[in-house]
Amino acid sequence: MTTATDRPATATRMLSVRGLHKVYESAGRPTEAIRDLTFDIAAGEMVCIVGPSGAGKTTLLRCIAGLLPPTGGDISLEGRPVAGPPKGMAVVFQDYARSLFPWLTVAQNVELPLREKRLPKAERHRLVERSLEAVGLADVPRSYPWQLSGGMQQRVAIARAVAYEPHILMMDEPFAAVDAQTRADLEDLVRDLWHRLGITLLFVTHDIDEAIYLGRRVLVLSGRPTVIMEDVAVDLPDERDQLGTRNLPRFGELRAHVYELVQKAKRGHRPENEPDAGASGAVGKEFPA
């Protein structure tokens, strides 16, 4: 079993975002959502993105997912520029109730993308069974999503993403709408899946604790128009558990640090080396272009 610490530090570049700029045109008045974002994510990394509400987190994720064309800048995934939803990527949205097909059973929901990949039947069934088992839903393949609790529905969405065998998995505040208890379980589930599958994970959240608990790296975004406040490395031990990790002194320090950054961002503070609108300055420090 490979763990994150065994992985080579100089892993290949999975995702590269260069000078991303996004302006919404609404009712004739342009709104600058993202001013300039530049960062890289290496293969096998677990990166969390936090920021105050309205920081353009979802916009960023939708741009990377190829669902929203950026106004400027480049995004490339595994070396290929993103124009439209790329191959090898899965997204788990916050609103699980709206992202599952209500007319398909749990198993059919998970299987649908695999059919589209034209996988043979036996292979599809194996993947569906395994991924449902991995999220603890092996007993409800024939149920419909709306027959399940919110936490279980989000597990179905995660199982669907996992069965798809993506190289990069992106999650947009996936646990914002589930209760605290379920949330802790799902966080551990995501860590566990990340460990076992060796995929790259990009996790957007507004919850600072969650970001630090999950991530190896936390990108803190400023308020609108968005730039990166700081790229925080999470130097916590790789084996994490809800009680122990959250009680570590280092966890507290990191939380205080990120909390302060987010508070600053809320007050409209901008990083000192903020690039001008439209310019592409390299902010990500781990992987200079």
Binding site: R62, L67, P85, V91, L100, F101, L112, P113, E116, Y164
Partner: peptide, 9 residues
């Protein structure tokens, strides 16, 4: 969006 990200034909 879900259908698009999973590249349904």
């Amino acid at each position: 969006d879900t259908a698009r990200t999973y590249r349904l034909r």
